[in-house]
């Protein structure tokens, strides 16, 4: 159990070190996801399975998908197909998937061994967390809901302004495209006149 804990912690530190030194954002994102998975395994080992599940769902699921959406929104362009062919090379996803395989093997090992032996540690159950959450921490829950509401409104406001500016830029590119189109029409008419 202790060896598994240190192994997961080692993977977490290693993948975080890789993630902050990558040059490309998506590679860093892959390693960061593996790092979050390793932290979730650490949570499971030290007796917090509920938090391990929450870490998987919220951090490795929602927040990373948000990062991925923004990165992919910014990469739309003529380089997209070329970039995609470079991303699909196995050297990109081999490292994260190998580390994730190690993590899932370790998790299965821990689950099997702790299922067979009597668990010596104190596992905090979700019921205990819920009782404590809505008992002495009720005001903090309200504050967190307020914070989430403020974050929602702020993100919506900023995103709306961004969309409006994108519309302005969009009209600009449309005008440029219209100019290019007129040039193309001119060239085509010239060619037809020459042919005539």
């Amino acid at each position: 159990m202790l060896i598994a804990f240190y192994f997961a912690a080692l993977i977490a530190v290693l993948t975080t070190a890789i993630a902050i030194t990558r040059r490309h954002a998506v590679h860093a994102l892959l390693y960061l996801i593996v790092s979050l998975l390793a932290v979730a395994v650490v949570f499971y080992i030290i007796g917090a399975p509920f938090l391990a599940a929450l870490e998987l769902i919220i951090d490795a699921g929602a927040i990373m998908v948000l990062f991925l959406f923004v990165i992919m929104m910014l990469n739309i362009g003529e380089r997209a197909t070329e970039v995609e062919t470079t991303w699909l090379k196995p050297a990109v996803w081999a490292g994260p998937s190998a580390l994730a395989t190690v993590l899932i093997a370790e998790l299965i090992l821990v689950a099997v061994t702790s299922g067979s032996s009597a668990a010596p540690m104190h596992v905090v159950t979700p019921k205990e967390i819920g009782v404590s959450l809505f008992g002495p921490y009720a005001i903090a829950v309200e504050l967190v809901s307020l914070l989430l509401m403020a974050g929602l409104v702020g993100a919506y406001h900023l995103g709306r302004r961004a969309v409006r500016e994108e519309e302005q830029f969009g009209t600009g590119t449309d005008a440029r495209r219209a100019v290019f189109g007129r040039d193309a029409v001119h060239a085509g008419s010239d060619r037809t006149s020459h042919a005539a």
Partner: peptide, 13 residues
Amino acid sequence: AAEVSVGLALFLQ
């Protein structure tokens, strides 16, 4: 979660 959503909106901006 709140911080990342606001930060990414700022980044888009």
